[in-house]
Every structure is written in structure tokens, then in C-alpha cells.
């Protein structure tokens, strides 16, 4: 952020303090370039979650293809995997809905 100079020095001090506070405040929902390596942002949680859901879908697809081509006869495990994949997908959709709601609520807040 550019250094903005303000006319009077006391106003400048207050402005600098506000800027520091803003930089160090926890950044919710926005990937911050100042985040420490050990902290995880909400966005990375979401990305990992989506990757997991995708992996479950792929595994379930592979198992159901094996049933169709006669490679495997493990019906109960295929059904369990299909259930897991479906439920995790539903959960992801709901998490997305809630995240969108939270985001729009934050955007509605008068600053």
C-alpha cells in the first residue's frame, strides 16, 4: 500500500496506527499476502475440501465401472462408496451456500 501523507502530523500518526491495525487484523475470507505459513485460510480449506470431494467421486466412479465390466463383484463396498461420495457432495454444496450467505451478509454490513 502506498504511503499516503496527510497534512497534519497527528492525523498522520492516527492514520499510520489505523493502517497497522488493518494489516495485522485477522483476514477473514480473503487470502492475505501477510499470512504466516502455519495459518490456513478459509479458502485453502475450501480448496482442500473440493479436492477431497472430487477424489471421492472419482473413486466411486471407478468402483462402479468395475461392477459394470465384471472386474469386481463387491456390491456393498461400491454402494458405500457411492453413498459417501453423494453425501460429501451434498455437504460441499451446503457449505458453499452458507459461505455465500456469510459473504453477502458481510457485504451488506454498513462500514
Amino acid at each position: 500500500m502506498d504511503k499516503i501523507t496527510i497534512g497534519s502530523s497527528s492525523a498522520q500518526k492516527i492514520f499510520d496506527q489505523l493502517k497497522d491495525a488493518q494489516m495485522n487484523a485477522p483476514q477473514i475470507g480473503m487470502p492475505s499476502s501477510k499470512t504466516e505459513k502455519s495459518e490456513k485460510t478459509f479458502a485453502s480449506f475450501l480448496k482442500e475440501g473440493i479436492a477431497e470431494v472430487n477424489q471421492l467421486q472419482k473413486t466411486s466412479d471407478k468402483m462402479s465401472t468395475d461392477i459394470a465390466t465384471g472386474d469386481s463383484e463387491n456390491i456393498h463396498e461400491t454402494m458405500l462408496m457411492a453413498t459417501k461420495a453423494g453425501l460429501s457432495f451434498n455437504l460441499m454444496v451446503q457449505v458453499r451456500n452458507k459461505a455465500l450467505e456469510a459473504y453477502s451478509e458481510i457485504m451488506r454490513m454498513p462500514v
Partner: peptide, 15 residues
């Protein structure tokens, strides 16, 4: 196996 194929397709359609 026929019914399992139908069931798996139903699940996918549901998703």
C-alpha cells in the same frame, strides 16, 4: 448386476 447399475445411475442423477 442389472439392478446395481440402475441404482448407481439413480444415485448419480440424484446428485
Amino acid at each position: 448386476l442389472f439392478r446395481s447399475a440402475v441404482e448407481l445411475l439413480n444415485r448419480k442423477v440424484g446428485v
